[in-house]
Design a binder for these strands. Structure first.
Lengths: 222, 222
DNA sequence: GCAAAAGTGTTCCAGATACACCCATGT
DNA sequence: ACATGGGTGTATCTGGAACACTTTTGC
């Protein structure tokens, strides 16, 4: 396997589908393109991978750049390589997806700069390249992983109520869940624990606050 | 996103984990390397992706080259990009895995050429680069997919007995299954149908032969 | 006292598991 | 007749789904 001359190499990029939950909706981060092709069009964050750069490290760096946060859950999604996906020349993109706890972002996102925005999955603008396909694949993967992994907890802040948690599941799965069955299932999972604190909001009974046992771990379950 | 000069591009390759079942074992195809690095070492088939070549098409081509067959099930596995995975320079590999029906190969494999071989998963030689990791990832994916897809049927020839099919499951999952429960489950899946033919082998009752309903389709189930 | 969300158990059903004997054939 | 793998049904267990009322608070 002789390596090719440098002129025979395709361009390698990353793209990241950054999910968060805000305003009771699953949202993702888009960036408005400043250059051709697709100038002015919304697109996923990402960038070109340098010769000596690790692909995942590149994705993580771009993710940190666009959110201003570190320690975010990041997972490789799929590598997109359709020959005409970039009109200029052959560009291959390794797509990742990332999950950010809503509360962490709220610190920053008031300062949303021009050309960066959070969009609800239901109201996406036209996307550049094959990014719509990436979003689709990422959403499917996310929904599938709710069932057999502890990935949902990546969306949760330090302290949260069981109703908050149920909301997260309902939004991602896009259907209502039974409260009692949901709580039973969460208890059985043993991924969260009660705290002694409660949250008082509005004119009703205060809600017990919970905490994730291993906030940075995503385990395959069952 | 300006594209980089050509001198700033990493090399892109594919590798394929080709599984088949032979001699009651899950086996995979390895190729002995003729050049440095890892000269003489066994490795996964694959090759460099050209600038204008689709990555999946490249993998399919390499797969057809090494097996002499076409129409094989091929699925993207993962993209490996650790910075030191190739000692020469930065090489990124998009790994695929493929499943071949045992009977199809038996036509060809008597002519196994020097430097190409089928190895049982339990008795793998030392592998070049990070190929051992690729094999591991592929095996995990395969075992997981048995549960929630119809991927297992990719291993089956045109006609097969239920015992054959049960064997396939047992080998991949590496544990025994109950005969009656297995048959009940297969019937419920509705992926295979009885034929009117039977197979007479040895001094016992002949076995009914079955056929896969949609041989080229892999569906997600349940 | 009323509105609003929090919290709590039991019944039912379906799918998975455990398990043992008769059948058709070749020698 | 016996050895060999082919073929079949039932009882039980378990995890998921459906379902309604009481509790605590603010106003």
């Amino acid at each position: 396997m002789p390596l090719p001359t440098e002129s025979g190499r395709p361009v390698l990029t990353t793209n990241i589908v950054v999910f968060t939950l805000r305003d009771e909706q699953l949202k993702l981060l888009l960036i408005r393109r400043r250059n051709a092709p697709f100038e002015g069009c919304w697109s996923l964050p990402g960038g070109v991978v340098g010769t000596d750069e690790d692909v995942e490290a590149n994705a993580m760096r771009k993710l940190e750049d666009s959110t201003g946060l570190s320690g975010i859950y990041l997972e490789q999604l799929y590598t997109f390589s359709a020959p005409e996906r970039d009109p200029r020349e052959r560009v291959i993109s390794v797509a990742y997806y990332a999950l950010v706890a809503s509360k962490r972002l709220q610190l920053r996102t008031d300062a949303d700069s021009e050309g960066v925005g959070w969009f609800s999955l239901n109201e996406l603008p036209e996307l550049a390249f094959d990014h719509a396909q990436m979003v689709d694949t990422a959403h499917q993967r996310l929904a599938a992983k709710l069932d057999y992994s502890t990935i949902a907890f990546q969306f949760m802040p330090e302290l949260f109520t069981l109703s908050d948690l149920q909301n997260v599941f309902q939004i991602i799965l896009n259907r209502d869940l039974d409260k009692r069955n949901f709580r039973k299932r969460m208890r059985a999972m043993e991924q969260i624990r009660q705290t002694s604190q409660v949250q008082k909001t509005g004119s009703h009974r205060p809600a017990r606050l919970y905490r994730v046992n291993n906030p940075h771990e995503v385990r395959i379950i069952k």
